[in-house]
């Protein structure tokens, strides 16, 4: 490979740098964007079974190129983000008790929530999309299926944990992503943006809980 300097390779030719930046980018696009869309979409549960099953679920299932979109825009980026994220989590030597600073806790919770989300998604995707492949009843009345599931307090709690972990992971990831890419540099800018991300997280969590409660009405 021709290079124009003796250290050129330690840049875009460096796997480590490219994978880390890819991991950072994928967290927002498309994974984070999908989470926002997904929570907005499911907040339509408020408008009843008829509306949800027809206008939301059927409309999405009727999309052309649905499976390639699901695989290339959702599953593959998510898988890449998770694999690189697990490799990053292995480097952690968190001491949340010795250093009780908010950012240190966020550092620790970011990695913890990542693992929680991964376990939750295995269950969540398995019980809806995957099980729906051979159980048409789930696809035909997803509202009723989710209503039965969320009526169980254990599953409701599980979904709440999965939701809050995902929202925290996205909001905190956004605020650190701004430092990684160099959008926020001064401590004041980093603090301001962290508050903006926290506000965004609270709104997104509210939308998610609103959607969950919608299935129970």
């Amino acid at each position: 490979m021709p290079t124009t300097g003796r250290t050129m390779t330690a840049s875009i030719g460096n796997r480590h740098f490219v994978l880390r930046r890819l991991h950072s980018l994928l967290g927002l696009l498309p994974v984070g964007a999908f989470l926002i869309f997904h929570l907005w979409e499911n907040s339509q549960s408020r408008f009843g079974a008829e509306h949800y099953n027809r206008e939301v679920v059927e409309a999405l299932q009727g999309l052309n190129y649905l499976v390639p979109i699901e695989l290339l825009v959702i599953a593959l980026p998510l898988l890449l983000h998770a694999v690189i994220g697990l490799a990053i989590t292995r480097e952690m030597r968190a001491e949340p008790i010795r250093y009780r600073y908010a950012r240190n806790w966020a550092y620790w919770l970011q990695r913890l929530s990542g693992v929680v989300i991964l376990l939750f998604l295995l269950l969540h995707v398995g019980m809806t999309r995957i099980q729906g492949l051979w159980t048409p009843a789930i696809r035909d009345d997803l509202y009723g299926y989710m209503q039965t599931l969320l009526s169980n307090p254990g599953f409701f709690a599980l979904y709440l944990v999965g939701l809050l972990a995902s929202v925290f992971h996205l909001a905190n990831g956004l605020s650190t992503m701004a430092i990684v890419w160099g959008l926020t540099t001064s401590a004041a800018a980093q603090r301001r943006f962290a508050w903006a991300c926290a506000g965004f997280g609270v709104l997104l969590a509210a939308l998610g809980v609103h959607g969950m409660l919608g299935f129970l009405s």
Partner: peptide
């Protein structure tokens, strides 16, 4: 910059800010 874009460089910061 190329040195800190390699393994063990800036990318390994986890932003714990301790």
């Amino acid at each position: 910059l190329h040195a800190i874009m390699a393994e063990g460089g800036l990318s390994d910061c986890g932003n714990a800010q301790n």
